[in-house]
Simulated scan of single mutants.
Amino acid sequence: MKPYFQLHEIALLSLLGALIFVLRLVFKIPIHVPGSSGLVWVLPLIIGVGIVRKPGAGLYMGFISGILASFFGVGALHVLDIFKYLAMGLSVDLTSMLFFYRFSNPIVGCIVGAVGNFTKMLVNYAVQMLFGVQATFILVGITVSATTHLIFGGIGGILAVLILSRLRRAGVITEDDKDAYN
């Protein structure tokens, strides 16, 4: 039986999943605007999905980064951070499939990045409501937060598409990379 992900794909997705966690930990954007970290973490997520182009690639990277975030407890939700990362990976997977992995178009990258960042925000608020944070506080904060999550996720998605196109032009990755080791 042939494995779903090849060994080189698992290695790439694992490294990029860990990079999501490291970038979120190391790069703090000091503008104090909700969702601004999406500008950074969306890059490796979309690049990994854009290179592997298989359903589940984003979910796998979300799992790796979520396990690391939960294990090291760097987020506000600690162990439950895994749900945010799994949700963002799944939403990037589904949105990428909707656009047939056409990351040559910056608009596709913008939409995929915005959806991923927005989904992460929604799961974050859902978990907070589960713990009893009053819905009034969440509703007041969600309007500005939703807008900024969409904007920063979209910008990160555009940057990811530009990086992918540069990697393709430089010959680092090709459209045939998916089938290179079959």
Rank of each mutant, 00 (worst) to 15 (best):
D81Y: 14
G109E: 05
V127S: 04
A170S: 13
G132Y: 06
H149M: 11
G56K: 01
R53G: 09
P34V: 06
I31W: 15
P34H: 11
L43M: 01
V42G: 08
K84G: 11
V133Q: 11
G35T: 07
R102W: 00
P34C: 06
S70N: 03
H78S: 08
D93K: 04
I64M: 08
V49I: 15
D93N: 02
M121E: 03
F131Y: 13
H8A: 03
I111C: 05
V79D: 02
F83Q: 04
T95A: 14
A69W: 07
A170W: 07
G89W: 05
G141E: 09
S165R: 14
F83P: 08
D176A: 14
I155L: 06
I20Q: 11
S104W: 03
T119S: 15
Y60V: 07
I51T: 03
V92P: 00
I111K: 05
A146Y: 10
S96H: 09
L68C: 04
V74C: 00
P106Y: 03
G141N: 12
K178G: 02
L19S: 15
G154T: 09
P3Y: 03
M1H: 00
G141P: 01
F71I: 08
A114Y: 10
M129K: 01
V133T: 10
D177H: 14
S91H: 00
V140S: 13
I67H: 01
F63I: 15
K54R: 14
Y60E: 09
F63M: 15
Q134M: 07
G56P: 02
N117P: 02
R53N: 08
P55C: 10
E9A: 05
